[in-house]
């Protein structure tokens, strides 16, 4: 019997190994569960995603035209396709403007020259709200803010639209 050697008893050895193996097994079970519980947080958010709206930059004129596209909206685990729309035109400086068609009054959909009495303006059919071509609301009509604008970028001659932002003149 060499007294200076640290002896590990059979009981201690079994305790250590069982705790170790049990710990691994518990972790193996818990980690996927935890991951699943926080899954939506880990997903990269759709913010800043741009969608191709199938409009070539060369086809954009000074007259606003309506473009529509679909995006996949993810709400937690629930995925749905949402239709989006915009009024797109080039202003006098040649910059592309993409306005949201949602009226800032109560959320109806505005149309370009939607009223014969008000040419060269966006018109809301619900309460006769009006906006100038720039998207700025006409004083004295129900809307109190200019139409929102889409973030935009151009790639390979095609127009991509992203998030809606408040009008820069708001």
């Amino acid at each position: 019997m060499s007294g200076d050697k640290q002896q590990v008893s059979r009981r201690q050895f079994l305790n250590y190994t069982l705790t170790g193996v049990g710990g691994f097994m518990a972790a193996g079970i818990m980690v996927p569960m935890l991951r699943m519980a926080v899954d939506p947080v880990l997903k990269t958010s759709g913010h800043g995603d741009f969608a191709n709206v199938n409009l070539a930059v060369d086809d954009i004129t000074k007259d606003p035209q309506r473009v529509e596209w679909e995006i996949e909206q993810v709400d937690g685990w629930y995925k749905s396709n949402v239709k989006k729309a915009a009024w797109v035109y080039k202003n006098d400086e040649g910059d592309i403007i993409a306005l949201s068609p949602i009226c800032k009054h109560l959320g109806c959909v505005v149309t370009w020259e939607g009223s014969d009495q008000h040419p060269n303006e966006f018109f809301c059919p619900c309460h006769d709200g009006r906006y100038y071509k720039s998207g700025v609301n006409v004083e004295g009509t129900p809307p109190t803010a200019p139409l929102d604008m889409y973030e935009k970028k151009v790639e390979n001659g095609m127009l991509y639209l992203g998030e809606v932002k408040p009008h820069k003149e708001a």
Binding site: C103, H105, L106, G107, C108, V109, C124, P125, C126, H127
Partner: peptide
């Protein structure tokens, strides 16, 4: 409803 949300 989507088009006329503010009045309907």
């Amino acid at each position: 409803e989507k088009e006329l949300a503010g009045r309907v």
